[in-house]
């Protein structure tokens, strides 16, 4: 019984301390830059993947020349915006 009581107390106290710890830190402890950067990199990966898939579809004849050009230009524009943003952030 004592062992169990001890275990439970330790569990409770450790959890509580772990949870409230951030509240006693300075407010700006979390950087939103990391978040933005992650999102941008994710976007970049996604756009690249999409260009790849678009190329495959075009090569296979699953998409018309006209659609392909429009879609590819649009994706390229999106990628360049993302890359510009990433560069800006790294400055």
């Amino acid at each position: 019984m004592i062992l169990e009581f001890f275990l439970i107390s330790v569990m409770f106290i450790a959890s509580a301390l772990y949870a409230v710890y951030p509240l006693f830190q300075p407010a700006q402890a979390l950087s939103s830059d990391v978040e933005i950067q992650e999102t941008l990199h994710l976007k970049k990966r996604v756009f690249y993947q999409e260009i790849k898939e678009l190329d495959i579809d075009y090569e296979l004849g699953n998409i018309s020349q006209e659609d392909y050009t429009i879609a590819r230009d649009e994706l390229k524009r999106s990628v360049s915006i993302v890359i510009k943003d990433i560069k800006q952030l790294n400055k």
Partner: peptide
């Protein structure tokens, strides 16, 4: 919008 609360919330969810 106090990010410390969010961090506590995350940790509580883990708990």
């Amino acid at each position: 919008n106090d990010t410390r609360l969010m961090e506590t919330g995350r940790r509580m969810s883990l708990i």
